[in-house]
């Protein structure tokens, strides 16, 4: 479990990092928190010729208030910083509630927001939360800069809209609208494992108590964060009764996801869990919206 030889660069600015990516392209990998890349290299499943280590690029570690009431989070912000940030707790309670589910404290001390979404593990929390928040991702290269909607960023298994010479520099997460309740839950074999299934929900009610808007995003049951649009369509315009929530959750688990089977859970069991968890988070989100 030793990686083959590679070249190592430790730039101290975004400009320097981008220049290295432009020079090495496909042969380069960005090292952020290293929580996925290093094991993959030790298993020799990834054999990059060049590592560009962002750990000295301090300008990428920040959490800043945005004008829309949400937050801008730098790509090299550690999970622990998000987890313990008062700004996050006040402005993005769904993200705040989700952070402790991410792996273990040791991993949260190293892992970064930008690393997690760039790696794009479909069972990871932050891609799903970014989609739920309808976040935008800021990408840069020596060629320029662009913002990509979270929906368009995650394109497949461990695959994103990033070009080989691009990197994520920040993530913009808008706040949830007023009268919105939220919830996150997941089921993993052991605390800290990748979840078999996880679900995030946000439900916005109109003054009469009917669903104005809803978001339901699943993780671990497809090649990317999976949106429960069938459930959302069922809920919209309705007063969410327990029966309706159950129906919405069940329909989403049948129609909106594409789970795979592995040694821990068959596809059928993942579908079952998706329905149970979707019911639980929708129920909690509605309760909170009514508060």
């Amino acid at each position: 479990m030793k990686p083959p030889a590679f070249k190592y660069y430790a730039p101290s600015s975004v400009e320097e990092a981008l220049a290295l990516l432009a020079e090495h392209g496909y042969d380069a990998k960005i090292l952020a928190g290293g929580q996925s890349l290093i094991p993959t290299m030790n298993f020799r499943l990834a054999q990059p010729g060049v590592l560009v280590d962002l750990n000295r690029v301090s300008e990428l570690a920040f959490i800043r208030p945005a004008d829309d009431g949400g937050l801008l989070i730098g790509a090299m912000t550690r999970h622990v910083q998000v987890e313990t940030s008062d700004l996050v707790a006040q402005r993005l309670p769904l993200l705040h509630e989700t952070m402790p589910f991410i792996a273990h404290p040791q991993i949260r001390n190293r892992g970064t927001y930008g690393g997690s979404i760039s790696h794009a593990d479909p069972a990871a929390e932050l891609p799903a939360i970014t989609v739920t928040h309808r976040g935008k991702i800021h990408l840069r290269s020596t060629r320029g800069s662009r913002w990509v909607d979270a929906d368009d960023f995650f394109v497949g298994l461990f695959t994103t809209a990033l070009e080989p010479d691009e990197m994520v520099v920040e993530i913009a997460l808008p706040p949830l609208p007023p009268r919105t309740g939220w919830a996150f839950d997941e089921f993993s074999r052991r605390h800290g494992d990748f979840a078999l299934v996880g679900v995030a929900a946000a439900v916005t009610l109109d003054p009469a108590g009917a669903v104005e808007d809803a978001r339901l995003v699943f993780m671990g049951v497809g090649d990317r964060p999976m949106k429960g649009d069938t459930a959302v369509a069922l809920l919209r315009g309705q007063v969410p009764s327990a029966d309706l929530i159950e129906e919405a959750a069940t329909r989403a688990a049948q129609e909106d996801i594409d789970p795979f089977g592995d040694v821990h859970a068959s596809a059928a069991f993942r579908r079952h869990l998706a329905a149970v968890l979707a019911k639980r988070v929708l129920t909690r989100a509605v309760e909170r919206a009514n508060r």
């Binding site: 074999r189 052991r190 605390h191 800290g192 494992d193 990748f194 040694v263 821990h264």
Partner: peptide, 16 residues
Amino acid sequence: MLTASFMDYLIPTAME
């Protein structure tokens, strides 16, 4: 063996 790493072979931790 389909469980040849600690990702898949689950040793209980203090949490369990």
